[in-house]
Each structure stands twice: as C-alpha cells, then as structure tokens.
Design a protein around this nucleic acid. Structure first.
Length: 591
RNA sequence: GCGCCCGUAGCUCAACUGGAUAGAGCAUCAGACUACGAAUCUGGCGGUUAGGAGUUCGAAUCUCUUCGGGCGCGCCA
C-alpha cells in the first residue's frame, strides 16, 4: 500500500473515532477528502483538507474540527507531528523511515512500481489513430496516435483492463476513390501513359507498387472491364496494401493496437442495420426536415425529408441524419453501430481519441451511445489539437513521396520515435503544440526529452562507476534493496524520495483525468530533483554519491540512485520511450 | 448566428480537478566544475490568472457576462 493510501485510511479512521466518541456529528455522508503533499515542503510531509470538507456536514468551523482530529492523528505510529495551518489544513510529519522504506519498495517492485488497482479491472476500450486506409500516415496523425497509445498504457498501469483498438474506415466513398486511383496505377503498370493524376484522385506514388502488384497477378484482364467488375477487387487489395503501410508506420512510432476493426465487416454482417433497428424500436428514428444550418448557408442546400436520429433527446443541439440522399447509411450511422458493437463486446467505458476538427461530432455520438446502450455505456472523447511542425522556427515541408503532405515517417526518420512520443506529451492534448524538429534534437536543458534521458543516463553512469567499489551482487537490485538506508539523512535526499513516492499518485490521477501529459511533466520534475541533488555534490564533496571511505553510506546512496532510475524507467515505459544508458554519440538504448 | 476548445510572468507552458504565498523553463542579471558527464546546478528580477459580476470557509479552476483567438456547423470521413 502506498504511503498516501495508508495515511488516507488513518485520517478516515480518526474521523470515525471522533464520530463514535460523539465529538463529531455528520448531517450527510462522509465527504471526499484528499491526502497530498503540501505545496510548501516546510509545511510537513503530507497535508489533508479533511477538516475543511467536513465543515458543512459537521456544522463546525474547519479549525475546530482540526482541533478534534489532531490528537487522534498524533497517536498514529507513523506520525511524528501534527499542525493546523491556514484555513484548516492539517499538516502531518512522518517518521523518516517511512520514506526510506518506500525507496526500498521502489527497488523491490522495479518498473512495476506505481502500478495501481484504482481502475478495479474495469474494461475500457481505447480507440485511436483510425486513419483512413487511403495512404501512409501523415504528421497530423502523430499526436492522436501517441496520446492514445500512452493513455492506454497509463490506464493499464492504473488497473484498468484495456483494449487498444483501430477502426478501419473501409466502407465509405473514399475507398472507391482509392480503388480508382489504384486502377489508374494498374493501367500505368501495363504500359499505358496515364498523364497527370486527375483532380479528386489520390496522387501519391505509394500507389504505384499496388498497381504493379495487381498487373503482375491479374495481367490485363481488368483493363477493358467496366468499373463495377473490377471495383470490389481493387478496393480489397488497395485497402490491404494501405493498412500494411499504416501498420508499418505504427511500428515505426512504437504504437500498438490489439484489435483492428473493419467498418466493412460491420456493415456486411448486418450490425449497422441491427443497431439502427434497435433505435427504431425505441422510437428514436423518424422522417423529418431539418432547419437550415445557421450562418453561411451551403449553396446547394434545400429542405428535404431525411431519416433522423433524435439526438436532441440526449443533449445534442439538433437531430442528426442517418441516411444519405442515395439511401445508404451515413458515417454517423455506422459509427453508432460500431460503438454499440464495442459495448456488446463488453466495454462499458469507451475512450476515443480524435482530432480537434471532429469536435462538432462529439455530442451526437455521445447521444447515440447513451441511446443505443440504454444509458449503460459511456463514451468519452479526448480531442487533440493541431501540431505546428517547425524546423528552426520555419514551417517544415518534406513530402518526399506522398504528394502534398508530410508523412509520419518523415518525422520519425528526422528525430526518432522516442523524441516524437515525448514531445507530443509536453502539452495537454487540448492545447495547440509547436513541434520544432531542430529543438527536439538539441541536448540542452530546454529539450525535455534530453533532460529526462540525461537524468537516467546519469544514474546508470554512477552505478557503472560504483563497480570499482562493489561486487555485482551488491549492485544488483536485490543487493541494493538490502542497503542500510538509515544512512540517508539529508533533507535533500529525502525530498528526492518523496518525489519518487508520488509516482503512483500521478498514475492514478493522470489515468482518472485521462491526461497522459502529466506523466511527462512528472518525469521532468523527477529529473530536476535528481539533477539538483547531483549538483549538491559539486558544492559539498560530502554529498557526492560515491564516498570511497564510507562504503555503507555509498551503498545507501546507490540504492537511492537505483530508485530514481527505476521510477524514470517506469515512467518512460508508460510513455513508450526507451531509457538511454548513455547519451554520448555512441549512445545505446537500455536492454 | 449556434456549439466545442482556449486566454496564466516579455516568450513557451504547469498548477495533482475547489485548497495555503499561482509554479517551471527560456530570456535577462549575479554565481558554481582539481567531478560520478557543467549537455548540469544555485540565487535575483518578473503576475489585478483577458475584463466584470456571482456561488462559499476558500476560485486560475464552478456559474453568468463582455472582449479576444482556434475548430466545427445536412446528404465528407
């Protein structure tokens, strides 16, 4: 159990005791309170707001409640001091050994340190990327891919049962366009001069090998055929080929999925019809005419009756069309079916990662999920704002093969997957992000990736040097866990451990808020606290980690270093970044 | 016109979801290497949290409103 949880329980027990003894009477249920590190380290080890949240239910001023709880908390074996401060905070001081035990626990747990059961095994489906299978991934997909991938890892670490999913939009009109584009490349492969790629088709030369492949397999049998004859085959082959490109891009970015769900398979299996029939049965579908959209009116707008979903009954601003004028389902309709399918596969909680340009779509799909699951399923959507790609402050253009856009591969080739991943998380996802490829490779303080990697490499460097004084056994994790940590006495060192002990709280709160960027910020903080400690040794040689004349002290400090390294690894693991053993030119990733 | 997101130090951003004196980096000023990597660190300067009103023990955070920026607004996905 973490220190925070332990003390949280102790505070809860103190309140219960006060209620039992009659000192406190609550008019409502016990409110939620927190135990957290105080803003000022001088205020103690931990602080709780319990007296303030109890003020109303107990009908007493916060400080009076704190006075009642103070002696009860002071009696706890781990508490060495209780102070009441400010409007009614209760500040606690703990035995230093508590923190030293935590350092030992970190080394023992390894990168599993920080694992939490807060998610209680709830099954959650995280859907991300879901780029259309019409070409390689472009830079615009980067952020959502990383945010989704890291959020999934974070939820898993926080105790959720996570499924990572990709939705293949292989049923829409854009796949017909893709097939026609490939057909052109097919004729080209047969020796025909196709000239310029017409407007409206995909011009990228990544389609050239697909056309060649079909020409190689099928010969000229399609060249004079009607579109209706060749279209199905070209669609299928083209989608497969594009998904192969996309999967390779995902591998390059170290992004993983458990399930690739095909929209076409959903349509073919009748699940769209079934889901819509379900809504029909609930009386939520009707034929009607929508008001024209406010603001600028589309030129070809005309009022006409449509098949509509009563989204307004579930909080949307207007009812939404389910069928196109040609009678086929809209994308919205198959999306309803898709999310209903997720729900029936056992995911009461669904998280979708979308680009901000889809923001207007959130309400209607949440309305649909509420309707089709009878309120049992919950959809949450995290929107990712745009990334402005720069190099030395100038907009970055590369587009070596794709025609008009910068591919994800261009970016990964330029700076590496680890850097891309980390930088994508240096802002909360609903804020715009400038990504300067030149700065991302700088080895300076203002490059957060480097800064964190440097801290990890420094830990490794110290442990390498320690091999001159200690046996491999003594430097193993088991050996370091046995170090006499009571040698660690300085406030600076304890502060570093207190920061490490925050890791599991960060995991829980970042997972609850679905904000993976908090992990990146925490790692920067952890790196800063460690770099600070390291430099204390410059001013005062007695604070250096390796003191050859005092092996027990050195061993204890090495254990502290190992704990720092462990938490950095654990955090980098969540981010999907490789921790670096060294950052020299011959740098290699940790095994 | 409507909806969503956003507005915090000169710049780029945090603030553990309502907590204490709003914190970091960059820039700027003043300092620290006979070392385990100074690619780092220590300190100073810098704020009416866009403006106004409200909710309560307490607001950057919640509500309303004004201003400013971004995205979206039938039969694209």
């Amino acid at each position: 159990m973490t220190i925070y949880r332990k003390i949280h329980q102790a505070v809860g027990a103190a309140v219960d005791e006060a209620i039992t003894s009659g000192a406190l009477t609550l008019s409502t249920d016990m409110p939620v309170f927190v135990v957290e590190p105080p803003r000022e380290a001088a205020h103690g080890d931990l602080a709780t707001n319990v007296a303030m949240v109890l003020a109303k239910p107990a009908g007493k001023p916060p400080r009076a409640i704190a006075d009642i709880l103070k002696p009860l908390l002071a009696a706890h074996a781990d508490v060495t001091g209780v102070e009441i401060a400010g409007p009614g905070f209760i500040n606690l001081r703990l035995r230093p050994e508590i923190w030293l035990d935590e350092a030992r626990e970190i080394i023992r747990a390894g990168t599993h340190y920080g694992d939490s059961d807060a998610g209680r095994g709830v099954r959650v489906n995280v859907e991300y990327v879901s780029a259309n299978p019409t070409g390689p991934m472009h830079v615009g997909h980067c952020r959502g891919a990383v945010v989704g991938d890291v959020l999934a890892s974070l939820l898993k670490k926080a105790g959720y049962d996570v499924c990572r999913e990709y939705y293949i939009n292989d049923a829409g009109a854009q796949v017909d366009v893709l097939a026609r584009s490939v057909f052109l490349r097919y004729r080209e492969a047969l020796g025909e001069n196709i000239g310029e790629i017409p407007q409206g088709l995909y011009p990228g030369d990544y389609l050239v090998p697909v056309g060649k492949m079909i020409a190689g397999q099928d010969g000229a049998k399609w060249s004079a055929a009607a579109e209706a004859e060749w279209l199905p085959r070209f669609r299928a082959i083209a989608v497969d080929a594009m998904m192969a490109l996309i999967r390779a891009d995902l591998v390059a970015l170290n992004v993983h999925h458990d399930v690739f769900m095909s929209e076409k398979s959903l349509v073919d299996s009748g699940k769209v019809d079934a889901a819509l029939a379900l809504l029909q049965g609930k009386g939520l579908i009707y034929e009607g005419v929508l008001e024209p959209p406010k603001g600028k009116l589309p030129d070809d707008w005309e009022a006409r009756p449509q098949t509509l979903f009563r989204a307004t009954e579930f909080g949307d601003d207007t009812d939404r069309p389910l069928k196109k004028s040609d009678g086929s389902w809209t994308y919205f309709a198959s999306d309803i079916a898709y999310h209903f399918d997720k729900f029936t596969r056992g995911f009461p909680l669904m998280v979708d990662i979308w680009g901000a340009d889809h923001g207007g779509y959130v309400k209607r799909l949440q309305a649909a999920v509420a309707a089709v699951t009878g309120g049992q399923g919950r959809l949450e959507v995290r929107l990712c704002q745009m990334v402005n790609l720069l190099k030395d402050g100038q907009p970055f253009k590369m587009s070596k093969r794709a025609g008009t856009f910068v591919t994800l591969r261009d970016v990964v080739d330029e700076v590496g997957a680890d850097v891309v991943r980390f930088i994508m998380l240096t802002r909360k996802s609903d804020a715009q992000l400038d990504f300067d490829l030149a700065k991302a490779l700088e080895q300076t303080r203002d490059n957060p990736v480097f800064y964190v990697q440097y801290a990890h490499a420094r830990c490794c460097s110290i442990l390498r040097h320690a091999a001159e004084l200690f046996t491999p056994d003594e430097l193993s994790e088991a050996g370091l866990a046995k170090a006499d940590l009571s040698k660690i006495a300085s406030e600076d060192e304890l502060l570093v451990i207190k920061n490490l002990a925050n890791w599991s709280r960060i995991v829980e709160s970042a997972a609850a808020a679905q904000e993976p960027h908090r992990v990146a910020f925490y790692l920067m903080e952890t790196a800063a606290s460690f770099h600070g400690l390291w430099n204390k040794g410059n001013d005062n040689a007695a604070l250096r980690f390796i003191i050859p004349a005092d092996k027990p002290l050195t061993h204890a400090r090495l254990a502290l270093i190992a704990a720092v390294r462990t938490v950095l690894r654990s955090g980098l693991g969540v981010l999907g970044c490789q921790p670096m053993e060294e950052l020299r030119s011959d740098a290699t990733a940790a095994a």
